[in-house]
Design a protein around this nucleic acid. Structure first.
Length: 288
DNA sequence: TTAGGGTTACAG
DNA sequence: CTGTAACCCTAA
């Protein structure tokens, strides 16, 4: 009967990744019961989540299935020299990793992921899409705060540390150009925007940018069997993702504290502009 | 409930 | 016809 193969949307994939980043790999039921993701993943089962995650990882190691017998990987873990990393708010919450991930390795992943995201083809429109998707995925009826948007993007794309400033500028730009409506420090998608209703058929893929740092190198052949390499590669992908997720969680927590201060400082200035901009934006859309 | 293997539907 | 992604079943 009607089982027309419900394909995964970008929003669902984003929610899945975010859920994995929060709860860890393998906690499918936990992710599904999380109220933040249950809205977007309400039509998926825990098995679906598992299968989808498996498929996404299969793509990574499927680069050398039949024609390339040479697939090697190298660990990007930095030398364990640094010991000044921040152990802020994680004493009992670390059940997914015990490794010491110093800032060097995180930074490299950050920059690589960010560069492939932002500098792939265009400088400006990429970030616009990311912001739009963030707001759409968050799906808050009254709009989303800048901090919420920032947190989401940090989880999804791991931008550099000066990203907050960049985001502020971009949000203001979008609000001024009418793509976003800013109401009392909350951002909503403008009604006239193509993002407002329905889904865009050509949403950019999150995996492409996040997978990139993980698939490294393609020469330096080793004397390993295909299955060995494949298994090890698949294991590497999940392990790296897990480590990165744990590291990102700590980094986000740290960044959030810093952002809170930044927002407090910018709060007055924004509050002053909020009313004027909201009024203008609404007037323009209402007159349409 | 989850991980893994197997099966079916769909796109190229 | 082949490969990929969603779906299904079962053991642990």
């Amino acid at each position: 009967m009607g089982a027309p193969k419900q394909r995964w949307t970008s929003e669902e994939e984003a929610a899945l990744r975010a859920g994995i980043a929060k709860h860890g790999v393998g906690k499918w039921r936990t992710i599904l019961k999380d109220p933040e993701f249950s809205s977007t993943l309400r039509y998926r089962s825990n098995v679906d989540l598992k299968d989808k995650w498996r498929n996404m990882n299969v793509i990574v190691s499927a680069s050398g299935s039949r024609d390339k017998g040479k697939t090697s990987m190298k660990k990007f873990r930095g030398t364990p020299k640094n010991s000044y990393h921040i152990m802020a708010a994680s004493t009992v919450t670390s059940d997914i990793d015990d490794e010491i991930v110093d800032e060097k390795s995180i930074a490299s992943v950050f920059s690589e992921a960010w560069n492939t995201t932002n500098l792939k083809k265009s400088h400006s429109s990429r970030l616009d899409n990311i912001i739009m998707e963030a707001i759409k995925t968050l799906n808050e009826p009254t709009g989303s705060h800048r901090t919420t948007i920032c947190s989401y993007i940090e989880e999804q794309y791991w931008p550099p540390s000066d990203f907050d400033h960049l985001l502020s500028a971009k949000l203001k730009d979008l609000a001024t150009s009418g793509k976003l409506i800013k109401v009392n420090r909350k951002y909503r998608i403008a009604p006239s925007s193509p993002y407002s209703e329905g889904r865009s058929p050509k949403m950019f893929l999150l995996e492409d940018v996040q997978r990139e740092p993980f698939k490294v190198g393609s020469d330096d052949g080793k004397t390993l069997t295909r299955s060995q390499v494949d298994a090890e590669l698949a294991r590497m992908a999940t392990m790296t993702a897990e480590e990165a997720a744990a590291a990102a969680a700590r980094a986000v927590a740290e960044a959030e504290a810093i952002m809170a201060e930044a927002e407090a400082a910018a709060r007055e200035a924004e509050a002053a502009e909020a009313d004027a901009q909201a009024a203008q934006a609404f007037a323009e859309t209402a007159a349409n």
